[in-house]
């Protein structure tokens, strides 16, 4: 018992002496811990900045795309209108007459039966209406969550009993 206490005391004194003789060892340990903490913080901050930067870039792209869409819609309307002016009934008739055509009369027509031809059909500008489930585009939480949001979400998430884990 006494021997054991002596050994312990001796070991403690050895450590104390070692630190007294080389105090930088303790400093090194403290610096190591501090640097580890800083490194973790830097890593997390980098992640945070990276995710936010990507989200901001995408947000800007969306905003610019919307502006482009608006500009294109204006242009499409203008071009559609110009095209319609060019192909209006009056213009087409004038062009046909300039090319030497004239309206046909009923006694000049020859009727031929074309099997399978359904005759003139009305225009279809879009597919017929049907039941459509419109779902919003799903964006990964990675683009919208900060790491703090993620951490809080994890903490608030219900913990399943072990027996229920898959």
């Amino acid at each position: 018992m006494e021997t054991q206490a002596k050994e312990t005391m001796q070991r403690t004194m050895q450590y104390t002496q070692a630190y007294v003789q080389a105090p930088w060892r303790r400093q090194l340990r403290s610096i190591g811990v501090l640097l580890t903490v800083v490194l973790v913080l830097v890593l997390l901050s980098s992640l945070f900045v990276s995710v936010n930067a990507r989200a901001a870039t995408l947000g800007r792209q969306i905003q610019r795309s919307r502006q482009q869409i608006e500009a294109l819609e204006f242009e499409i309307a203008q071009l559609r209108s110009e095209l319609a002016f060019q192909t209006s009934a009056t213009n087409m008739r004038q062009r046909a007459e300039a090319l030497g055509f004239r309206p046909v009369t009923s006694d000049e027509l020859v009727y031929v039966l074309v099997p399978g031809y359904p005759g003139r059909q009305a225009v279809v500008l879009a597919p017929p209406a049907k039941t459509v489930v419109i779902s919003r585009p799903v964006i990964s939480p990675a683009f919208t969550q900060s790491w703090l949001d993620w951490l809080l979400a994890q903490m608030e998430a219900p913990v399943l009993p072990l027996a229920e884990l898959p």
Partner: peptide, 9 residues
Amino acid sequence: GYLLAGNQL
């Protein structure tokens, strides 16, 4: 499908 009334810029 001929345009009778449309929009212009």
